[in-house]
Design a binder for these strands. Structure first.
Lengths: 211, 211
DNA sequence: TAGATTGTTAATCGATTAACAATC
DNA sequence: TAGATTGTTAATCGATTAACAATC
C-alpha cells in the first residue's frame, strides 16, 4: 500500500496542497477536479489522479474532490497535522528574513530557536525569539527532539554545522548555503541557491553581448 | 547539435559548475574526472559524461577534465560570460537579505535595481542601491533591457507584478511568492518556497504525536 | 606499455499520458 | 437519465545506467 512511493510524487503533494488551500480561500466552490487543479498548476490531470491514487481514493466520479477533505488528507499524508518546531541556524540578513516570515504559520512549521556564533548577535531579539549561542545548539535540539533545521550560515561552516545538527538528531535540513552537503542516508536535505536557479534560466536567454 | 537538450540536463549544469569552482578554489589539482565529480555530488559518473556530451567533448581519455577549461565552457553554455543585471522587486526583510547577499558576484549576476511600493522605503539606501518607486518599474526595465527579475512581494500582488515585468520585457523570474504564476511560454519562472521544501521532507519524518 | 578515463551505444529503469470502464 | 469525472491499466515517452571500444 504505502510502499515505495516515488520521491517525485511526494514532491508534488505540497504544491497540490498549496493550490487547494488557495481554492479554499477563494470560497467559490466546495469541490474541484483533477482537470481544474491541473489547469491551474500547469500539470496534466492524469498525473494528479495518478499521484493521489498512491495514497487512496479521495474523489467521487462525476463531482471530483471535496476541497477541504483533500486538504486534510494531504496534510495527514505529509505529517502536517501538527506544528513542527524548527531550528534556525544563522542570524544574518537571511536568518532575519526567515525569522520574520509569517508564511510558516498554518502550514505546519514554527521557527522555535535561532542560533548564531557572533557575540554581537547573541541575546538580541528577533521577532519574539532570542538569538542563542551556537554552543547551545546540541543541548537545545536534543532536549526538544527537534527534527528540522534551516541553515543560513556561510558556505565554509555549513558542513560543520550540518554534522553537528545530524549528530544532535536533526533529520531534515533546508540549506541556503551554496554547497553540496554530505549527510547519512536517513537525513534529507533540500537546497535553495538563488544563483543556481538563475543560472538555469540564463541558458534560455540571448546574451546581450552581440553589440 | 545544440538541439533539444532536456531541461533536466540544463538544471544540473550549474551544480557541476559550482562544484568545479569549489575544486578550483581548493587548488589541489588541475584536472578532475566524472567519477570524482560524481562522488562529490552524489551523481553517477555516467550521467555527468552523458550530460556534458550534449554540448561537445571537453575531456581527455585517461586524464579527465581540465577544471578551469570545463568551468569556462560551462559558463559559455549557460551564458554567464558577462554579468546579468537583475531587478529586485520588494524591499522587505527578504529583499533586504537578497540585496546584501554577496554570492551573486563572480557567478554571473548583479542586483542592479530595487523597487517597492511603500513610500517609507522609497529612497532608502540598501547596500549601495536606492530603493525606487514601483511606478518606475517599466521605464527602468525597458531602458536597460533587463531580462531577469527576483520577486519578493506578498502573494496577493505577485501575479500583477509578474504581468508588469513580462510586459516590460523580463524573460526570467525567480519568485519567492508562495503561488503558481501564469506567464507566456517564452518566460521562465523558478520558484523558491521554503515551506513547500520542508513539507516534502516531513513526509519522511515520524510525527511526534505518538504520546 | 599499462592504467585510467572518456564519449557513446544499447539496455534498463521509471515516469507520464492516453484511454476507458465504472459510477456518482 | 445524461454528463462529468474518477481510479487504473496499458502504452508511450524519456531519463539513467551499464558496458566498452577508443585513446590519452
Amino acid at each position: 500500500m504505502t510502499t515505495e512511493i516515488p520521491d517525485i510524487v511526494i514532491g508534488r503533494l505540497p504544491i497540490y496542497l498549496r493550490e487547494l488551500r488557495q481554492l479554499a480561500r477563494e470560497e467559490k466552490q466546495l469541490t474541484t477536479s483533477s482537470h481544474e487543479l491541473g489547469r491551474r498548476l500547469g500539470i496534466s490531470s492524469a498525473q494528479i489522479r495518478k499521484d493521489l491514487s498512491h495514497f487512496g481514493e479521495f474523489g467521487k466520479q462525476g463531482t471530483g474532490y471535496h476541497i477541504k477533505y483533500l486538504i486534510e488528507q494531504l496534510q495527514q499524508i505529509l505529517h502536517l497535522t501538527q506544528e513542527w518546531p524548527v531550528a534556525l541556524i544563522g542570524a544574518g540578513y537571511l536568518g532575519h528574513a526567515i525569522a520574520h516570515y509569517n508564511g510558516f504559520q498554518h502550514r505546519g512549521f514554527r521557527i522555535a530557536w535561532v542560533f548564531d556564533n557572533d557575540p554581537a548577535k547573541i541575546g538580541v531579539e528577533m521577532n519574539g525569539l532570542t538569538v542563542q549561542s551556537i554552543d547551545e545548539l546540541e543541548e537545545t535540539i536534543q532536549q526538544n527532539h527537534t527534527k528540522i533545521a534551516i541553515i543560513v550560515v556561510p558556505a565554509n561552516v555549513a558542513q560543520k554545522i550540518t554534522d553537528r545538527l545530524v549528530t544532535a538528531g536533526v533529520e531534515s535540513i533546508l540549506s541556503y548555503a551554496p554547497i553540496n552537503l554530505k549527510v547519512p542516508n536517513h537525513v534529507h536535505v533540500s537546497y535553495s541557491d538563488p544563483v543556481v536557479q538563475m543560472q538555469q534560466m540564463t541558458y534560455y536567454l540571448q546574451p546581450p553581448n552581440s553589440r
